[in-house]
Amino acid sequence: MSLWEYANPVKFIRTTDRVLPWLAWLSAVCLAVGLIWGFFFTPDDFRQGSTVKIIYLHVPSALMAINGWLMMLVASLIWIVRRHHVSALAARAAAPVGATMTVIALATGAIWGQPMWGTYWAWDPRLTSFLILFLFYLGYMALWAAIENDDTAADLTSILCLVGSVFALLSRYAVNFWNQGLHQGASLSLDKEKNVADVFYFPLLVSIAGFVLLFIALVFLRTQTEIRARRMRALLARERMA
């Protein structure tokens, strides 16, 4: 019994089919509890008023935006090293979910930024990094979409993911350097956990758990779809060969 057994598409679909309903319900419950608790049963912040409550959407989506890319990186590495097709397809499946998380993080950030900083957008290092991360997601998905041969696409996107990760990291440091260099350390950065009191913190944790579960459920579902699409192409190809 090893983890790699789940690299078999049939086994993967069978197992995830059993897990998916649980994941989906658990995620829905966590999200409902976390968001309702956060929105309606926490006190307003003494400085920020009720606008602070967008944190329950913003922080979890931002976390999943980064972790989504990390998951793709790991899946890409597994594909490069062990050539498990499910792994490549999981990376492909995670990209749109991660990109959506990035958009949610950026949008909620903008909505939060307007009352707090008086502007929807500032070229703050953290904001800029997320925008760049979104561009990386776009490029990755575009490359997948552009190549017809499945294995070629998997190889190329995996290497792009690897190289992209290095450059995303470099960009993060470059952007940090760039903005400090310009604005002498703009004070827009959000030092999260340290400033968050327990009363806000627990609903935040629940809501983060909800987002993580939601991400996993969506990736499982999308991977199943990718596997079935791949299986359909393989069947059609066999039809042509015979």
Partner: peptide
């Protein structure tokens, strides 16, 4: 090298390369 086999690779090439240019441009 990533886009060499593609028929309309030019636009995709820009989309892939420009984000990678960010650190170089910044410094």
């Amino acid at each position: 090298a990533l886009t060499v086999g593609l028929k309309r690779g030019g636009l995709l090439l820009s989309l892939l390369v420009l984000p990678l240019y960010v650190p170089t441009l910044i410094f």
